[in-house]
Nucleic acid binder design. Structure first.
Lengths: 254, 254
DNA sequence: TCCGGTAATTACTCCGACATATTACAGGAT
DNA sequence: ATCCTGTAATATGTCGGAGTAATTACCGGA
């Protein structure tokens, strides 16, 4: 067994081939360590209750200084993944203490093979929140909101969802709706979930061609919001979320 | 080597006048710094775009080592409050980058005078999520869930919401509902919001006596969940949230 | 005017030492 | 024998300083 640890550092170039945490540009060392450990925890490599090796040992194993390792641990602690106490060591907290809606935690969860049950939970939450957001947007939108939505919709039509530009337009459309709710809490929440869920959408794209043209459904949402019809907006958005769920679900079983 | 270390350290109680972050037992120094800075940012003392003084200067000003200060900054960075770059310094990020649903961030937001608009946003989100949670709970609860809810309800009756034991029972009741949804994402979300919202409830308690006996409303929620009537559960919970909103709103204008 | 090289500033990383808190154990009193 | 208390061991926490790396801002040349 090779004890050689991944060069988290610069370009040792050895690179035993393992997909180790390498820090790209703009990414600090402690950030890379946090990323690596975060994914390890989210993937179940470290189970709740497990206690990590001591600071000195672990830092040495990763070939980083104790400072960098500690700063990474602080990040994980801030997200509720671990807890450190003198003499007791650093242990992984039970799952109900994790900040599952933290954007980075979500990213770590979806970095590997995401837990099916968790994906289901997120879709369920989205199915609850997004229609309600559409309802609020229908009541509070102004001309600017509508213009941005309309532009995004046009861009979606031009590029289709098969292109990156098209998906960006899709995100813009949903973000415009969220902005129109005038609710910051709703905004951060749905932004996180939406990003995570869109990770799985890439699975969908990979698995099969789009089973259906999504544009008309988006138009229905837009029309309802423009008309100020809250109930219709909520229902139209419900349809949209259901469709996304169907697609992803059928892609995941296949 | 005399280590005259005011404020931030032990509980010297001297307090050189400045309201510095004091660390209680079980709270590390860097945690105290993060708490202090987090509250300062949430309270608007540091505005988005502001750039903090350099590490050396700030750490010196707080009379702590750079290590402790840096670890605190990592925590804030993990929560999306600040961003650090070489040569540019550490700047406060725009509000839409903040993880407003992070439990600690919420605690910091409610540590001082909470922003009225933000409280409104949270109640709005709660009004969206909690009825939906009750609906799911009605569909998925098992005997254990119902037993826990029933016990909590009995405890609420015994102690009333005026006592701490009564409020604990109230929390248990709502938590039991969330657990019955079998949705971890929903659980962490509503747990955070609920805790934050209950901060404001203490304002309510302070301002006026309970305007209404809340037990019957809770019982209606329980009955609907026990009967498996999803629609009725959602509606009953909606009433509950509305009442809490009314109370808090009337307390905040007073 | 614009572009590229250079210098200065700031965060980032590392190191080694000491302090502190918590656990675990041993010893004595009940 | 059990429980409590004091003590020692151990891992995290805190400290101070030194050196590195990255980004910005400035300056000079095309």
């Amino acid at each position: 067994m090779v004890k050689e640890n991944p060069s988290l550092h610069r370009d040792e170039t050895d690179n035993g081939g393992a997909a180790k945490a390498v820090r790209g540009p703009g990414r600090r060392l402690h950030g890379a360590i946090a990323h690596k450990l975060g994914m390890a925890i989210l993937s179940g490599q470290y189970a709740p209750g497990d206690t990590l090796s001591g600071e000195v040992a672990f830092a040495e194993e990763l070939e980083v200084s104790r400072s960098a390792y500690r700063e990474a641990i602080q990040v994980l602690t801030a997200k509720g993944l671990v807890e450190s106490r003198p003499k007791a060591g650093t242990r992984v907290l039970p799952r109900n203490r994790w900040n599952l809606l933290d954007p980075e935690v979500l990213a770590w969860a979806f970095a590997g093979e995401p837990d099916i049950q968790f994906v289901r939970d997120l879709f369920e939450l989205r199915a609850i929140v997004e229609p309600a957001a559409a309802r609020l947007a229908a009541q509070r939108r102004d001309k600017d909101d509508l213009r941005i939505m309309k532009d995004a919709l046009a861009a979606m039509r031009r590029h289709t969802l098969a292109t990156e530009a098209g998906r960006a337009a899709d995100r813009d459309f949903h973000n415009a709706i969220l902005n129109a709710t005038r609710n910051d809490a709703l905004l951060t929440l749905t932004a996180s979930i939406g990003a995570a869920v869109n990770w799985t959408t890439q699975y969908k794209q990979r698995a099969r061609a789009l089973p259906r043209n999504p544009i008309p459904d988006h138009v229905r949402v837009y029309d309802a919001i423009a008309a100020g019809d809250a109930q219709a907006a909520a229902e139209a958005m419900g349809v949209l979320v259901d469709l996304a769920l169907e697609d992803t679900a059928s892609a995941m079983v296949g």
